[in-house]
Simulated assay, not measured.
Amino acid sequence: MKSAPFIAVEGPIGAGKTTLATMLSQELNLPLVKEIVEENPFLASFYQNIDEWSFQLEMFFLCNRFKQLEDTGAHYIQQNSPVISDYHIYKNMIFAERTLKGTKRDKYRQIYHLLTDDLPKPNLVIYIEAELDTLMYRINKRGRSFEQNMDPAYMKQLIADYKTGMNDLAKGENPPVILKINAEQLDFVQHPEHFRQIVNQVKELMI
């Protein structure tokens, strides 16, 4: 890579983004930027009524991630120092395009581009793919109260939206390198050799 690696770990809810990002941060001695999730005051309401609360939810996430990435740019990217994050800002559009409708979606698109177009973007994205049953199992296992009534139909659509979103990201302007990890084949938590395989791939791409 010509510039210092800015790595993002992505995937649908329950894919293991934060877990893998944390493990890689420790293994590669990289600072970690973690997204704010449970602090969002609209989460519980959103899962009870998506149409009513989606705009408030997405705006909270967007503003928090904007501030995080603005600081990341100042502290690491501008200093040409490597860093890893457990999200890519583009995930905001993946979720918003599904949950928002009409004028709210149009307004959100405008605000998204206004805030993010000049933010630093990852040059390496680790995209974790997983099947519906695996995601639902992991969501139930981690026990977040607001996720316990997660609609499988919503999750199934989210899997499809992520595949489309990652393809769009790969075709965009200055696209990142995308490393796909199949969570059905590589259990990086339970099998150290699987994690080592991922580490080796990431190291090769960081050069």
Rank of each mutant, 00 (worst) to 15 (best):
A4Y: 07
I7F: 00
V9C: 07
V9K: 05
G11T: 06
G11S: 10
P12V: 15
P12R: 00
P12I: 09
P12H: 02
G14Y: 00
G16N: 03
K17P: 06
T19L: 07
L20D: 01
L24W: 09
S25C: 11
N29Q: 13
V33E: 12
V33I: 15
E35Q: 08
E38C: 11
E38Q: 15
E38A: 15
E38W: 01
L43G: 01
S45E: 14
I50W: 07
D51F: 08
E52Q: 15
E58S: 13
F61G: 02
L62I: 06
L62W: 10
C63M: 15
N64S: 12
R65F: 14
L69N: 15
L69T: 01
E70W: 14
D71T: 13
T72H: 03
T72R: 02
N80A: 14
P82L: 12
V83P: 05
V83E: 07
D86A: 08
Y87F: 15
H88V: 06
I89P: 03
Y90L: 05
R98M: 08
T99A: 08
K101I: 06
K101Y: 02
G102V: 05
G102Q: 03
R105Q: 12
D106Q: 06
K107Q: 11
K107F: 03
Y108G: 03
R109I: 02
Q110L: 12
Y112P: 05
L114T: 14
T116L: 08
T116D: 10
D117P: 06
L119G: 13
L119T: 11
P120G: 10
P122G: 00
P122T: 01
N123Q: 05
L124V: 01
L124F: 00
L124K: 00
I126H: 04
Y127A: 00
I128W: 07
I128V: 07
E129F: 09
E131D: 15
L132M: 14
L132R: 07
D133F: 13
L135Y: 06
M136A: 11
Y137Q: 13
R138L: 07
I139P: 00
R142C: 01
Q148W: 01
N149G: 10
P152N: 02
P152C: 12
M155A: 08
M155V: 02
Q157K: 13
Q157I: 03
D161G: 05
Y162C: 02
Y162S: 01
K163G: 09
T164E: 14
T164P: 07
G165A: 13
G165W: 02
G165P: 01
D168F: 12
E173N: 04
N174I: 05
P175L: 12
V177S: 12
L179D: 03
L179E: 09
I181S: 03
E184S: 15
E184Q: 10
L186V: 00
D187T: 05
D187K: 00
D187A: 11
V189N: 13
P192V: 01
E193V: 09
Q197S: 09
I198G: 04
V199H: 05
V199C: 08
V199R: 08
N200I: 11
V202Q: 01
V202L: 14
